[in-house]
């Protein structure tokens, strides 16, 4: 969707009566004429814009002046709002969490979700433009690992700080930024609505790898997988064994993660492996399954006899 801002510009130019054309667009955005032409084709074909070329002015106007770009198209401002909403819905952890999280996925794709189909009560969030703008800046700084200067107010005082922003967390009551100070690695949590001013510097900081940034409260409890210790004759390649994630390796013994026992048992019956070391309960289940199958085979053999 990166051409949307060009399409927006072109639409504005048409409405302003300047009769823009693909050359104007190419020049303005420093892109090729062919790219600009493709944008215009997109407007006409996909967005059904009634573009009419007026030779006299060597540019375009709308044949139907009542035409409005469809809802799929949105301004930068609207995009920011939806991004913010997606962020809040994604991290929502309350009743009907699944519905809220699904909305996040839909918003992420910028499609028009038919929210009416969801029977559950949907949370709504206040749209504070200042907060949305801040989140935008913070997200950028996190992504680019940029040091930030912030003016932060809590109940004790206002202070200016240099911080390394790491993660944005949405609690049910608002947004939080997890960061470290420039010189030590201890995590600090800031309320986004307590950040009076934020400036993204050009300086970068180094992120500690593999650090799990835990929120203050209610880390969402996620189900942990079972871990099977399986021995093989030769090393496995990649980080998964036929789709089952490999968590650790000690020579030819691998820790394999799985959630669904029945599926994993089926997999053990058909895949190649050398030794099932743990867990004991899984070994037992596999033994029982194999025994049942063997018993059925003996029965069949007896029938034949």
């Amino acid at each position: 969707m990166s051409h949307m801002h060009r399409i927006h510009w072109f639409d504005q130019q048409v409405r302003a009566g300047t009769y823009p054309n693909s050359s104007h667009m190419a020049e303005h955005f420093e892109i090729s004429r062919r790219q600009a032409q493709r944008d215009l084709e997109y407007m006409e074909v996909s967005l059904h814009a009634p573009l009419l070329y007026v030779a006299k002015y060597r540019g375009y106007c709308y044949e139907d002046t009542t035409y409005v770009l469809p809802h799929l198209y949105m301004t930068e401002e609207e995009k920011k709002v939806l991004k913010y909403l997606a962020h809040r819905y994604r991290q929502y952890n309350y009743e009907n969490r699944e519905s809220a999280n699904r909305i996040a996925s839909l918003l992420d794709r910028f499609t028009d979700p038919d929210v009416r189909e969801m029977n559950h009560r949907i949370p709504t969030f206040d749209m504070n433009p200042r907060i949305i703008q801040l989140i935008e800046k913070l997200s950028f700084a996190i992504q680019e690992s940029r040091i930030m200067i912030i003016m932060y107010k809590d109940h004790e005082r206002e202070q200016q700080l240099r911080i390394c922003p790491l993660k944005l967390i949405s609690q049910y009551y608002g947004d939080e930024l997890i960061a470290t100070s420039e010189h030590d690695q201890e995590y600090i949590s800031f309320r986004v609505d307590g950040i009076l001013y934020a400036h993204v510097t050009t300086e970068r900081f180094t992120r500690e790898a593999e650090q799990e940034v835990k929120p203050w409260n209610g880390q969402v409890m996620t189900r942990k997988p079972f871990i099977a210790k399986v021995g093989f004759i030769s090393p496995l390649e990649g980080d998964s064994w036929h789709g089952y994630r490999i968590l650790a390796q000690d020579e030819l013994v691998y820790d394999i993660a799985f959630y669904d026992t029945d599926s994993f048992l089926m997999h053990l019956l058909i895949a190649k492996w050398n030794e099932l070391i743990a867990p004991q309960w899984l070994k037992h289940k596999l033994q029982v399954k194999c025994q049942e199958t063997l018993n059925r085979l003996h029965v069949v053999e007896e029938d034949h006899e």
């Binding site: 309350y94 009743e95 009560r121 949370p123 709504t124 969030f125 206040d126 049910y172 009551y173």
Partner: peptide
């Protein structure tokens, strides 16, 4: 002050 959260707790304001 807390209108957003009240709203999202629907009719069950005491339930975190």
């Amino acid at each position: 002050l807390v209108r957003e959260t009240i709203n999202n707790r629907f009719n069950d304001i005491g339930l975190r």
